[in-house]
Computed example of a mutant assay.
Amino acid sequence: MTTDATNRESAPPMLASFSAWRRICQHCEPALYALLRVAFGIVLFTHGLPKVLGESHGSMANPMAGSINLIQNVMGLPFAPQLAFLVMLLETVGAIMLALGLLTRPVALLFALEMVGISYALGPTWPWIDRGIEFPVLMAFLALYMVARGGGAYALDRRFLPHRK
């Protein structure tokens, strides 16, 4: 009869190293997921704050006007100023909520929808380098992962909404 300790002792050194690495990764996973959620929220917040402050952002002299133009003239949606205001709220308040892990799933779903909208607006040519569509595509998939995963171990969802994970 062999035990786990016996198997580990007789395992080749490389296999034992991978096993130890796996245990370390499993131990760190909750904190790393929280870090991913926080970084995602910070990146989104940096896009919302200039809209709130009315300051330039990158090549956009007026980010809020740019959002209104994108929604109205590129996407052809009605109520562009109101939708741009909601995008600004999502990218500020929603980004903070996501970073804190508060209502993670619904907020992440809204971000996934926003990123799909941005990807649609940048189409139909889907430029990979010129306009950087790979970033909203990647962010859409990250947001969908957060929808499926929830807030994680280090989220306010677990503290204030114990039935949520």
Rank of each mutant, 00 (worst) to 15 (best):
T2G: 02
T3I: 07
D4F: 13
T6F: 12
T6A: 15
N7P: 00
N7Q: 14
S10Y: 05
S10P: 00
S10D: 09
P12S: 14
A16E: 07
A16R: 15
S17D: 11
S17R: 14
A20S: 15
A20K: 11
A20Q: 11
W21T: 14
R22M: 09
I24M: 14
C25R: 12
C25P: 00
Q26R: 12
H27L: 13
C28F: 13
C28E: 10
E29I: 04
E29H: 11
E29M: 12
L32V: 12
A34N: 01
A34T: 08
L35M: 14
F40H: 02
I42A: 15
H47E: 06
G48D: 04
G48W: 00
L49F: 11
P50Q: 08
K51H: 06
V52D: 04
L53M: 14
G54F: 07
S56V: 01
H57W: 13
G58Q: 05
G58K: 05
M60K: 11
M60V: 00
M60G: 01
A61P: 00
M64E: 04
M64L: 15
M64T: 07
G66N: 13
S67P: 00
L70Y: 14
V74W: 11
M75L: 15
L77S: 04
L77N: 05
P78H: 08
P78T: 05
A80T: 04
L83C: 07
A84F: 04
L86E: 06
V87Q: 03
V87E: 03
V87P: 01
M88W: 02
L89H: 02
L90Q: 08
E91L: 11
T92I: 09
A95M: 05
I96T: 09
L98A: 05
L98S: 02
G101E: 06
L102G: 02
T104S: 11
T104K: 02
A108N: 09
A108E: 10
L110D: 01
L110G: 10
F111W: 04
F111K: 06
A112R: 06
E114W: 07
M115D: 06
M115E: 07
V116I: 15
S119I: 00
L122Y: 05
G123K: 07
P124L: 08
W126Y: 15
W126A: 11
W126C: 08
P127H: 13
W128M: 13
D130T: 14
D130W: 06
G132A: 09
G132C: 08
E134S: 08
P136R: 01
P136T: 03
V137D: 05
M139Q: 05
M139R: 02
F141M: 11
L142W: 12
L142H: 02
Y145S: 13
M146N: 04
G150W: 12
G151W: 01
A153M: 13
Y154T: 07
A155F: 06
A155V: 03
L156T: 00
L161H: 05
L161G: 04
P162M: 12
P162A: 11
R164C: 06
